[in-house]
């Protein structure tokens, strides 16, 4: 609660964190971190530099670089962001601004190593996502390694209700699958193999039976 009349104007979940915090006008402008005093792990530096080389303007690498730093540090910590800033020759502020905008860049500490995103958007909710989410939370209770979070549509409503477990899409899920997912992650096994999206044939039966429409067949 801050800002005019104590109304949390921007605390309602849209992508505007921090707009209600006052600016410190006394502060010196931030500087680009000094390479001499900012150690960056070699592997991370190499990865970021590789990304920077892909674009006509190196700044385009900001998001891939932040995600690389997150893989390295577990989250976009101030230290991680400073390292990216050092390699990209930007200020930490400019990168923090980016990191706070996106759902997949975590700017709060977390001990977890594994992400379970349970989709609770419309098509999944129509098919019982809420129960799956509750079951997943229950299955992860007390587990330090699991980060369960409800997520917006993950682009797999054909296997609704579904979840993304460390990027692997599984569905259609039943509440009972939650315990299996938690166990599979713990054992380091492929998650819920029979329900992985990658194995699913196309729904369009005619397409399944057709041949690729390549130039050879169709050309006169």
């Amino acid at each position: 609660m801050s800002g005019a009349e104590g109304v949390p104007r921007f605390a309602h979940g849209s992508r505007v964190p921090g707009w209600d915090r006052a600016v410190d006008l006394e502060k010196d402008p931030e500087e680009v971190p000094d390479p001499a005093t900012t150690p960056v792990p070699d592997a991370l530096r190499a990865e970021i530099e590789e990304y920077m080389g892909r674009y006509p303007h190196a700044r385009s690498a900001a998001i891939p670089a932040l995600r690389a730093a997150q893989r390295h540090h577990g989250w976009c910590s101030p230290e991680a962001i400073e390292q990216v800033a050092c390699v990209m020759r930007m200020t930490s502020a400019a990168l923090t601004e980016v990191a706070t905008f996106y759902d997949m860049t975590e700017t709060e500490p977390r001990p977890h190593h594994h992400d379970v995103f349970v989709c609770t958007n419309i098509s999944c909710s129509l098919r019982g996502a809420e129960a799956v989410y509750d079951a997943m939370c229950a299955a992860a209770a007390g587990r330090e390694d699991l980060h369960v979070r409800s997520f917006e549509c993950l682009g797999a409503c054909d296997i609704a209700p579904m979840a993304s477990v460390d990027g692997v899409y599984v569905g259609p899920l039943e509440p009972a699958d939650a315990a299996t997912i938690a166990e599979d992650v713990r054992a380091g096994r492929p998650v819920l193999e029979a329900k992985q999206l990658a194995r699913r044939p196309v729904a369009d039966e005619e397409a399944r039976e057709s041949r690729p429409a390549g130039a050879r067949e169709a050309r006169p």
Binding site: P201, R211, P212, A213, G214, R219
Partner: peptide, 27 residues
Amino acid sequence: MKLLFAGIDEPGLNTLDVYRRAGGYES
């Protein structure tokens, strides 16, 4: 009529080899 989805489940269609054998990249 299938265009984009023609043979979409053909094993290995994601590889250049199979795609080309089906006439890919002639366009």
